[in-house]
Design a protein around this nucleic acid. Structure first.
Lengths: 231, 231
DNA sequence: TCCATTTCTCGTCACTCCGACGATAACCGC
DNA sequence: GCGGTTATCGTCGGAGTGACGAGAAATGGA
């Protein structure tokens, strides 16, 4: 192996959820320099004998305090501009996590306090390092993947209604969808959702059937977001 | 920054092209241990002050001997299993490149001789390190992206016919497509291709109109590959 | 109790898109 | 000219979708 420049490798997490009709991201306040006091994506160094997915899962459980069975985790991309960290050459492998709304506050074992913040409330340049860019890439990935995968259900609890699922799409895409057409599409795509057999109770309006995730991962044909049609 | 485990960071390239109706990948024979004499993806260490995309472009030009204007380059994913390189902890950022068929042999400035090999001819376990897995991921990414982007044109020379573009789809997907429906789809999607105004000469059959890439990057609606329909 | 309100669910209709395929156009070599 | 080959245009039916009407099943207030 002779000579090679030494790097530090970290993982950073873009953890998204939908709560109160807004897309939220999990952020931590940095307690040390650089960027002390600024919001940042949760993350940390990869251990010497640790695989990259394992490091991501470890950080996720440390920050959210929950084992990972619910939700979804995938690699987002790797960022390594030479000047991205003033301390030295740090390459970070970013991960995208989609979680249901755990309406309890985040109980992290980590000292740093993690909080949910609405993505729309963040201003450019507000996050540490290049985390603005990473967050933007993560949000765009999530938006795109809702089109052709069944990942929207990862934002939902194990049992959910069609309307809850529609709210996920509407929130992530920032558009409104026709409830009747959405209902037809979701229930008509084999394997997307499966009826539980029960219904909601005590909510306003007619009770809604409860569903859980189906086995399908890809949507064929996809559900394309409404486009500002090109000329 | 105090303590952190030191890593080596490399870039590896999955360079794909379509030649003689087969999907080919650019491979090098390793001249040193480990995996000496085995085929591997071209790649190398990231320099100390080098950005990751710059390292990928550098390796690409070193291996193919051509500046990068033609074709397409994107980050594929990062692979860092602790045991993936017997020499130590090496994390590699893999990139996917799609190039037109430069039917001249690859004139690399690199000492290692790079060669095009048909992807279908490779057997599992034939490549060094975890390059089998990286190649498989790259091929799958290319297949998926043909569906909803105009990337197929990256496999074509600056001017090409609809039939050439169809051959790209057929080769990458391993399916046959109806020439008439394909022609309708390609020419009917605004911004996918633009007529040059000239036609081929001296080929067999009726001359074909020449096109070049249009400005569109996304295909709306996508061109879905024929599916072995689900039940 | 009755009614307005809310929300879920089922239909209808027109339009687009796509797969399957027929037909014609424009070149080649002989 | 003639057959072979490939490119291009057209037609037809079915699947999928956007726009929207209408009924079903709950709640809450007069």
């Amino acid at each position: 192996m002779a000579e090679y420049p030494p790097f530090a490798v970290t993982v950073d997490l873009v953890v998204l959820t939908v709560r109160s009709d807004e897309l939220n991201v999990l952020l931590v306040r940095r307690g040390v320099e650089p960027y002390r006091g600024r919001w940042a994506l949760p993350g940390g160094f990869v251990h010497v004998d640790e695989d990259l997915p394992a490091a991501a899962v470890r950080e996720l459980t440390e920050e959210t305090g929950l084992a990972e069975p619910a939700g979804h985790l995938e690699q987002l991309g790797t960022y390594g501009r030479p000047d991205r960290d003033p301390r030295g050459r740090v390459v970070t492998v970013a991960w995208l996590a989609l979680l249901p709304d755990l309406d309890r506050p985040v109980a992290g074992t980590d000292a740093a306090s993690a909080e949910w913040l609405p993505v729309a409330a963040l201003r450019p340049g507000q996050l540490a390092f290049d985390h603005d860019r990473i967050l933007a890439d993560g949000v765009e990935r999530a938006r795109a993947k809702l089109e052709y995968t069944s990942l929207a259900a990862a934002f939902c609890p194990p049992e959910f209604t069609v309307a809850q699922l529609r709210t996920v799409y509407e929130t992530v895409w920032g558009t409104r969808l026709d409830p009747r057409n959405f209902h037809r599409k979701v229930t008509g795509t084999p394997g997307f959702v499966e009826p539980v057999g029960r219904s909601t109770e005590g909510e306003r309006g007619r009770p809604a059937q409860l569903f859980r995730r189906g086995p399908a991962e890809l949507l064929h044909p996809p559900m394309l977001r409404p486009t500002a049609d090109r000329p």
